[in-house]
Design a protein around this nucleic acid. Structure first.
Length: 552
RNA sequence: GUCCCCGUAGCUCAGUGGACAGAGCAGCGGUCUUCUAAACCGCCGGCCGCAGGUUCGAAUCCUGCCGGGGACGCCA
């Protein structure tokens, strides 16, 4: 569509209907958007408004010239009509309407695409590494981890739909003192000691203590054995497996579980540091090794190796960068809580110093969610054990409702999530509104089958009235929602679209009867239409990891 | 102190340069003998935090201020 407008502009200039741009004027980009008001057509361009000043002509006059030029060249290369109408509107918008027959024909294309409808083939397919959650395995996932989990998985699904390849990755620390503290907590629990002396005090520590297998206990309690380490190593793996199970419940499966320990053992950290040293980005001072982050715009240099010889977390970040890029990714996405804001600059700087394109490293920071119960904030402390687990949240409000809640908000918005309110409003939640549309259509299809009617052989050229075409138009927007969302790394437009699509369907349902034994041809055409609608809703929900029930 | 995010309807949030600022929930009033009423229709509800500026046009961009959250240590 953008190309059609640009071509029309060129034709208008050649034909002398519009003056050429004066020398030295930057060419305005041709912008085409979906107007908010359907009366303004399927697409609209502000090109005339942008050309008014350089061309020294009234915008409306320019818009008229563009509309005329578009009408001249309406049939595309294959001779089909794309445009139904092109008209100028005050103050200078160019409103475009697709040809109705073309819209109706697309219903067949949607049905032919099947569940793959909405998936876009990208000209510039890239391989993304999306790293998210990455909570240390010192306790079960809690509601504080929820947003990162949903954000990361929803984004991954969207990128895949847009034709990219995605590796979902979870990074965890099985190396540092936190694991030792976890093990110590298990030891204290087994010894029946007072838990308020243990570093971690949640109920799950008691469960771990009770479930520790004999061989772990033998190793831990052996004379001269390192009890904290032995318990910690076992417990952290046990917890990690639990995290994997919780994520599986959300429909999220990580491709790679990367541990900081293996990063050290496999030499990635030393390798990364060495590369920075040879590129001259490191220096020693006060016995510590520093990265010259200020050379890349940071406000201070950053320590890589402490004076006691230990690598910092930042050093692990450096090694991890080298590790990730060595695996062939084009693009790294880090989904982090906003508390990581301070580490963004140094990691990107390190990537640049290592010779990677800075644009290929993206940090997606999400804002905190304030969890409430009947208006009162829910406290959260992993060490103190006073937290609500993600599993408990899912038990209470359900996977579909939770996924919708997080997917329908931009990740930079601070959110309030009232658990009691979410449960109480569950039936009114927009996610059920969308699912209901899917169930309703499924029901129509069932009824049709009982009456011997199906979409099979439906002639979509019979779809001509505005109600039918309005629904068909709504269906056609899915691919561009996917494309735009993936390009912007924003998925919440999908929820808005799904809701709107459901609303259009519900209105259609009110106004047009689908199954009518007296009019089998119309019935079959409309069955094709609603089946395409069902499929489109299922695709949109699928991209959000939400189920599409056949009945409710 | 420096930096980042946010401030839009009673509540939770979309909209981030275009055509009258939207949705859901909550509230009020209507609609089921007919493919699922978890639906539909109508009403109520906004100095888009405040003040300047840029623009043909600003909720959107710039500056300052106010309010909320967060980050800044050779910490992990």
């Amino acid at each position: 569509m953008r190309g059609a407008v640009a071509a029309a502009w060129a034709r208008a200039v050649t034909a002398g209907a519009l003056p050429p741009l004066p020398e030295g004027t930057p060419t305005p980009g041709v912008e085409v958007e979906r107007p908010a008001d359907p009366a303004h057509g399927d697409f609209a361009s502000n090109l005339a408004l942008r050309l008014a000043r350089p061309c020294r002509r009234p915008p409306l006059e320019i818009a008229r010239a563009l509309a005329d030029a578009l009408a001249d060249g309406a049939p595309d290369a294959s001779g089909r009509r794309l445009l139904g109408a092109a008209e100028a509107a005050a103050p200078g918008f160019l409103n475009l309407r697709l040809d109705d027959a073309l819209i109706a024909r697309q219903v067949d294309a949607i049905l032919a695409a099947g569940p793959a409808y909405g998936r876009v083939a990208s000209d510039e397919a890239e391989w993304f590494n999306v790293e998210f959650v990455s909570a240390n395995p010192t306790g079960p996932l809690h509601i504080g981890n929820a947003r990162g989990a949903f954000v990361g998985d929803s984004l991954s699904r969207l990128l895949e739909a847009a034709g990219h390849r995605v590796t979902r990755e979870y990074y965890f620390n099985d190396f540092g003192s936190q694991i030792r503290e976890l093990g110590e907590s298990v030891r204290v629990a087994r010894a029946g000691g007072p838990m308020d002396e243990a570093p971690y005090r949640g109920d799950y520590v008691l469960e771990l203590a009770a479930d520790a297998p004999d061989e772990v206990v033998r190793e831990a309690e052996a004379p001269g054995g390192d009890a904290a380490w032995a318990y910690g190593a076992w417990a952290s793996e046990w917890i990690r497996a639990g995290i994997e199970a919780t994520m599986g419940r959300l429909g999220c499966h990580f491709d790679v579980w990367r541990s900081e320990g293996t990063l050290h053992r496999d030499g990635w950290i030393a390798r990364g540091v060495e590369r920075l040293r040879s590129s001259g980005d490191l220096y020693e001072s006060e016995g510590a090794l520093w990265f010259r982050s200020t050379a890349y715009g940071d406000d201070k240099d950053r320590v890589v190796r402490r004076s006691n010889g230990e690598y910092t977390y930042f050093a692990a970040d450096i090694g991890y960068l080298v590790d990730k890029f060595s695996r062939g990714f084009d693009h790294l996405v880090y989904v982090w809580g906003e508390d990581h804001h301070g580490t963004v600059a140094r990691v990107r700087n390190a990537a640049q110093a290592l010779g990677y394109r800075p644009e290929s490293v993206e940090m997606l920071l999400y804002s905190w969610v304030r969890f409430l119960r009947d208006g009162a904030p829910v406290g959260m402390s992993k060490r103190g054990g006073t937290f609500i687990t993600l599993d408990e949240l899912l038990d209470e409000v359900g996977v579909d409702a939770a996924r919708w809640f997080f997917a329908s908000r931009g990740h930079t918005s601070p959110l309030d999530f009232d658990i009691e309110l979410a449960k109480r409003q569950a039936p009114e939640n927009p996610v059920y509104y969308v699912q209901y549309a899917h169930a309703r259509i499924s029901s129509i299809l069932r009824v049709a089958r009982e009456k011997g009617l199906s979409a099979e052989g439906g002639d979509t050229t019979l779809l001509r009235d505005p109600i039918e075409l309005g629904l068909a138009r709504a269906l056609l927007r899915l691919p561009e929602v996917v494309e735009d969302g993936a390009a912007a790394h924003e998925y919440h437009e999908l929820t808005a679209y799904a809701q709107e699509l459901a609303a259009v369907f519900h209105a259609f349902y009110r106004d047009r009867r689908v199954v009518d034994a007296a009019a089998p041809d119309v019935s079959r055409a409309r069955l094709a239409l609603v089946d395409a609608a069902r499929q489109t809703i299922a695709c949109a929900l699928g991209l959000l990891g939400i189920s599409a029930p056949e009945s409710m």
